[in-house]
């Protein structure tokens, strides 16, 4: 392409994924602009992770289309989506157990985005840079088994960042962390975003959504319930209802 695409970086149109009779993701539409940082929230079972799996090519769509910079990526294998510049993490971290932290991140650097392919040596040099970015520099040579849970979450992010994505999908990287660790992880997400990467993150911790996201998308039962500025969305009656139930929402309103 000779000119930069004027449209959104990521565009979802009627994205649908069914498991048997259940539509886990049901006609989801939204757009994400380049350089944005967007949070996806929703109660358990709302279809957040399924949606991420759809975007990253882990699941095949049952309907709708997903476009990256205007061209469809629906039906592509995960490695092709990754090479086009969409990096992702897993909610339950999936490290390469026999490798050191550096080697884990090196895999991301060795593969990942097709436009910046590099040799083994350069890939490990990049891995060191990324490890420094996420604050794992001192632990580069440790095996995964020697890393703490927060460090493993960092490693998961580092691996995805090392693929040099234009869009990074983060699946609950703050889950299970304490307050101090969340602050550190927030700092990490901000610094990754500051390198020019668009970020789409799933999060249960509202502090994270309000703290870093410019926009929030609320999913419920596989559908988009509301989207907009985090503070506004979180006060939306329908969102409170989805999270806390109808009765609680009414009581909140009448009080």
């Amino acid at each position: 392409m000779s000119t930069a695409p004027a449209g959104p970086q990521l565009e979802l149109r009627g994205v649908t994924k069914r498991f048997g009779g259940v539509a886990a993701v049901d006609g989801v539409n939204f757009e994400i602009a380049k350089g944005d940082i967007v949070g996806i929230i929703g109660p358990n079972g709302a279809g957040k992770t399924t949606l991420l799996n759809c975007i990253s090519g882990v699941y095949h769509l049952d309907g709708g289309d997903i476009k990256l910079n205007g061209s469809s990526i629906a039906g592509m294998a995960p490695h092709r989506v990754a090479r086009l510049g969409i990096g992702r993490t897993f909610q339950i971290v999936k490290p390469f157990g026999s490798m050191t932290a550096r080697e884990n991140v090196g895999i991301g650097a060795l593969f990942g985005s097709a436009h910046a392919r590099r040799g083994v040596k350069q890939a490990f040099a990049l891995a060191d840079e990324v490890l420094a970015l996420v604050g794992l520099k001192a632990k580069a040579d440790l095996p995964v088994s020697a890393l703490t849970i927060p460090d493993r979450k960092r490693l998961e992010v580092a691996r995805a960042v090392a693929t040099r994505p234009q869009l990074l999908l983060l699946d609950e990287v703050m889950a299970g962390l304490n307050n101090v660790e969340i602050d550190e992880a927030l700092e990490m997400v901000r610094s990754v975003h500051a390198t020019g990467v668009t970020v789409l993150l799933i999060e249960h911790v509202m502090r994270v959504i309000v703290g870093v996201c410019r926009r929030a998308i609320v999913l419920d039962s596989g559908q988009v319930l509301a989207q907009g500025e985090p503070e506004v969305v979180l006060r939306d009656e329908r969102v409170i209802q989805a999270y806390l139930g109808e009765r609680y929402a009414k009581r909140l309103k009448s009080s």
Partner: peptide, 22 residues
């Protein structure tokens, strides 16, 4: 690079694929 890809597959195939390993 080939070998690193193979080891990544051994350690976690799904993670390898989303990092760009065919």
């Amino acid at each position: 690079r080939f070998g690193y890809g193979l080891i990544a597959i051994r350690e976690n195939e799904e993670a390898a694929s989303v990092l760009g390993v065919n």
